[in-house]
């Protein structure tokens, strides 16, 4: 069953910044989708658009079908009912995403009381249960956010996201501000909970390795568009789009001194969403750009089993090989 279907979603901010430009995504119940990309590629905007949380001045078109219902055309009362009960969000940087003047227990209980018509006592019990579920003592409900560590706050955020038993969880950079050990704990926790309760997960991160570890499928975004999509392991290990290659190539391989001493980043900055380059938006930074790339926009096209990529070199016979050959020629062959 399709849990979430995003069709041709575009978001244009007041001022002309085209943050999301025609994104299509599909997520089945119980599936885990990773959305990767640099800062400013539109991934957080995408997350907010799923629950219609963008400011009123942002222009949003397309469809966001959540359980078959279009979130973008719902009445506001229905939107509020769907928020958190149908889909909840684990926000990035839980320090600021929690209200500093309320106890975390009350903040977790708030959506339960709102959506589930629970009694105070029932909500309190549910909060205790949720906290233990994410590995915190139930007594932590009485703490304020500043009394918790970063990892604990993120656990509270996850407990909060689970409060109303949603079918979909959107995790927007859930581990970005955490150190590596805590990051691994939180990722393990999210994976476990999602598997246990058969939830749908959309995980957004700039960290391709984290996503490849956690998710079934990966979508790589660049300048407001999905430029590559496919099974997570394949996209990570063998990206077809030059941008996907650059992303996965920017992580050094442990045990390989060559990759440590010569990390392959991607030169240049992502384009200004208010002034995108013509043609393929990636061509100014692309190591294998052709003349045609500066002129023609590239749509996502099928690229093998369950894979799609938006590159002129993909989709023709042998095109992927061609890209690899060009990259190798410049000494930028990715290791994985």
């Amino acid at each position: 069953m399709t849990l979430l279907q995003v069709r041709d979603l575009t978001v244009t901010y007041d001022g002309g910044a085209r943050a999301v430009r025609g994104v299509d995504l599909t997520l089945a119940a119980g599936q885990k989708l990773g959305v990767a990309g640099e800062s400013g590629c539109g991934k957080s905007t995408l997350a907010l658009a799923l629950l219609r949380l963008l400011p009123a001045s942002a222009k949003v078109t397309g469809e966001v079908l959540l359980g078959g219902e279009d979130v973008l055309t719902m009445k506001w009362g229905r939107v509020r009912a769907v928020r958190w009960a149908g889909a909840s969000i684990v926000f990035q940087g839980a320090m600021h995403s929690l209200n500093a003047v309320h106890r975390v227990g009350d903040q977790i209980a708030e959506p339960i009381l709102l959506h589930k018509r629970a009694t105070r006592e029932g909500a309190r019990r549910k909060v205790a249960e949720l906290l233990e579920h994410v590995g915190l003592p139930a007594a932590r409900a009485a703490s304020y956010p500043h009394e918790l560590s970063g990892g604990q706050r993120q656990r509270v955020m996850i407990a909060m996201a689970l409060a109303c038993d949603p079918e979909l969880i959107v995790a927007d950079e859930p581990t970005t501000a955490l150190d590596v050990m805590i990051q691994a704990q939180i990722l393990g926790l999210i994976s476990r909970l999602v598997a246990e309760q058969d939830l749908g997960l959309v995980m957004i991160s700039h960290d391709l390795a984290v996503l490849a570890d956690t998710c079934d499928r990966l979508a790589v975004m660049y300048a407001g568009r999905v430029v590559e999509e496919g099974p997570a392991a394949q996209v990570y290990a063998d990206a077809l789009h030059p941008y996907g290659k650059a992303l996965s190539g920017s992580f050094p391989t442990i045990g390989d001194p060559a990759s440590r001493f010569a990390p392959r980043g991607l030169p240049g900055d992502p384009p200004d969403p208010a002034a995108l380059p013509p043609g393929c938006t990636f061509h100014p930074r692309c190591p294998v750009a052709l003349d045609v790339c500066a002129r023609d926009d590239q749509e996502l096209r099928p690229a093998g089993a369950g894979r799609r990529a938006a590159c002129v070199r993909v989709g023709r016979t042998g095109a992927a090989e061609d890209v690899r050959a060009r990259v190798r020629g410049q000494g930028r062959e990715p290791e994985h």
Partner: peptide
């Protein structure tokens, strides 16, 4: 512009 207000809205509060 605070994040916790986005959280509160995402929870479905009026």
């Amino acid at each position: 512009g605070s994040d916790y207000l986005t959280t509160a809205r995402a929870k479905g509060l009026r």
